[in-house]
Design a protein around this nucleic acid. Structure first.
Lengths: 128, 128
DNA sequence: TTGCATTTACGAATTAATTCGTAGATTTGA
DNA sequence: TCAAATCTACGAATTAATTCGTAAATGCAA
C-alpha cells in the first residue's frame, strides 16, 4: 500500500467543504463550518495549516490571502476508510459491510434502485 | 439517536477479540493482541479498565481475576460506523458507499455472489 | 507457611488533536 | 494618508488516547 492517510473528523469536515467548493480561502471554509457550529477563525486556520504539513491540502500562496484545495480525492479517502472499516469491524468481509449497509437503507427505494442498476452493470461486464 | 459510541482503533481491536471469544480475562485478550504487535500487559489492562468506564465493556468481578465481555454488539457498532461514514465522506448517500465498496471488491467472486443473493432476497421481500 | 507469580489499581509521562490569543504584515477605504 | 480590518504565523493551554512502572492484594505451589 502507498501512504496510510487517516484524517480526523475535523479534517474530514474541511475536506468535504473543499471537495464540494474547489479551491477557496480559509475565510470561505470557516464560514461554511460556522453554519454548523461555533468556531474561531484561527482554529480553522490552524487546522488547515496542519493539514498542509500532513499533505492533506495544497495551497496557492501567490497572494497574501492563500487559496487552499484538497490534495487527495474523495474517492481515495472513501476507499481507504472502507478498507479500514472492513478490516476493523467486519472481519475482513466486504460483503458483510455491503449487507449491513443495505439492511440499514433498504427503506430508501431510490437508493436501492441505484444499487440494483449498478449491480446489473457489473454483471454484464463480468460476462464479457 | 440514543448514545453515540465512538471506539478508538485500540478499543475496536479489543472489542473484536471479545466478540470472537466471548467472556475472557485480560490475560487472554492480551495474548491475542501480542500475536499482532508488541504490547505491555498493563497497557491492555488499562485500556480495558477505561472501556469499562465508558460502558463499552462489562465485567464479572466475582473472582479476583475479572472476566470481561463486550457491552455492545458488533452489529450496533457496524451500524453506527457505517452511518458516520456515510455522513462524513459519502454526502449522506448510502448507495455511494455500497457502490464504492462493490467497486473495490468485485474481484472477489465469492463475496459478489453473497451480495447478489442477499439483494435478491430483499427483492422478494419487497414484492410481497 | 512462605515466597513467587499474577492481578488490579493508580498515577504519571508522552503524544496528538483541538482551541484560541496575540503579534506582525498587508490590504482597504474613508 | 493612515486607521481599521484582515490575514498569517506561532505558541501555549486543554483534552483525550496511549503507554507503562510500581505498589498492594491475592492466589498458588513447594
Amino acid at each position: 500500500m502507498s501512504k496510510q492517510i487517516k484524517p480526523t473528523d475535523s479534517e474530514l469536515e474541511i475536506l468535504n467543504i473543499l471537495w464540494q467548493k474547489g479551491p477557496v480561502t480559509v475565510r470561505e471554509v470557516h464560514e461554511e463550518i460556522e453554519k454548523k457550529k461555533e468556531a474561531g477563525y484561527t482554529t480553522t486556520l490552524k487546522l488547515m495549516q496542519i493539514m498542509i504539513e500532513k499533505k492533506l491540502l495544497k495551497r496557492d500562496e501567490t497572494s497574501k490571502t492563500h487559496v487552499y484545495q484538497s490534495a487527495i480525492s474523495r474517492e481515495q479517502i472513501q476507499g481507504q476508510l472502507i478498507q479500514r472499516m472492513i478490516d476493523n469491524v467486519f472481519n475482513g468481509s466486504a460483503s458483510q459491510l455491503v449487507m449491513q449497509a443495505l439492511g440499514n437503507y433498504q427503506a430508501d427505494a431510490k437508493e436501492m434502485e441505484k444499487i440494483k442498476t449498478y449491480l446489473e452493470e457489473i454483471e454484464r461486464k463480468n460476462k464479457k
